[in-house]
């Protein structure tokens, strides 16, 4: 189908798996961070904001380098895992998943922060005074009122993860079925002078990115949430 090889399909599968997991994990992690950022005016807020936004300005190689050092067999996380009888995380799917979560963090946190700021604290305070618990407040008040923000955060995270390259190349190498995502495979196809395959996959990613961004701007018009 589409003239794609088994290697191509395998890379598509790895990429989709990476994007889905990264998006789910980030929505869980980013929601409390964004909520805290939206309601906080202390100096600590600036620091957290800066840390969250770091991947926007850092070269992917810097993140890739540090993660390789920390997650590899000689790094403190990697060696701790090894001593527990587990595998270190360099050159593994779990490793690039951790990298993606960090690398796409701003794309989840920023739209949510924006949505929560627009919402303000008033609706949850009212719900609280009416006796709604924390979980109840989140699912019946916050989520329905800011779902545009969640859709934008999820879509942006998903798309940005699909577009990752440098971090994955450094930390994951290019192992088929494990860390060889689409962007890395395109690089590999080019190096092998396999231009037809590189074309097909590049076009696929181009269309995917264009459609995703169109969806985001469409949502944005309706909800006026993310500043892009």
């Amino acid at each position: 189908m589409l003239g794609l090889s088994p290697t191509d399909w395998q890379a598509i599968e790895v990429t989709l798996r990476l994007c889905v997991y990264t998006t789910l994990i980030l929505l869980v992690i980013a929601t409390p961070i964004a909520w805290w950022l939206a309601g906080n005016r202390s100096p600590a807020r600036v620091v957290v904001q800066a840390i969250v936004a770091l991947p926007l300005v850092l070269p992917p190689t810097v993140l890739g380098f540090y993660l390789l050092i920390v997650l590899g067999p000689r790094g403190w996380i990697g060696s701790t895992l090894e001593s527990l009888g587990l595998n270190h995380l360099a050159f593994s799917f779990e490793g690039i998943l951790i990298a993606s979560v960090i690398y796409s963090m701003p794309f989840a946190v920023q739209p949510l922060t924006e949505a929560f700021s627009n919402l303000g604290r008033r609706p949850t305070e009212v719900a609280s005074s009416l006796g709604a618990g924390l979980v109840d407040r989140f699912f019946t008040v916050i989520l329905p009122l800011t779902k545009g923000g969640f859709v934008v955060a999820a879509t942006l995270t998903f798309a940005h993860t699909a577009g990752e390259f440098g971090v994955i190349l450094m930390l994951g190498g290019s192992i088929p079925g494990e860390t060889q995502v689409l962007s890395v495979l395109i690089y590999d196809h080019t190096e092998a002078m396999n231009y037809e395959s590189a074309h097909r996959l590049s076009f696929l990613l181009l269309m995917f990115s264009f459609i995703t961004l169109s969806v985001i701007y469409g949502i944005n018009r309706r909800f006026a949430i993310a500043k892009l």
């Binding site: 067999p73 000689r74 990697g78 270190h88 050159f91 593994s92 192992i175 079925g177 494990e178 092998a192």
Partner: peptide
């Protein structure tokens, strides 16, 4: 068989860092 191509020096560094 899975095969990964690269420069010999890069592959060596990767193996030293635990590449499978």
């Amino acid at each position: 068989v899975r095969v990964v191509y690269g420069s010999s020096g890069k592959m060596t560094t990767q193996i030293l860092n635990g590449a499978p």
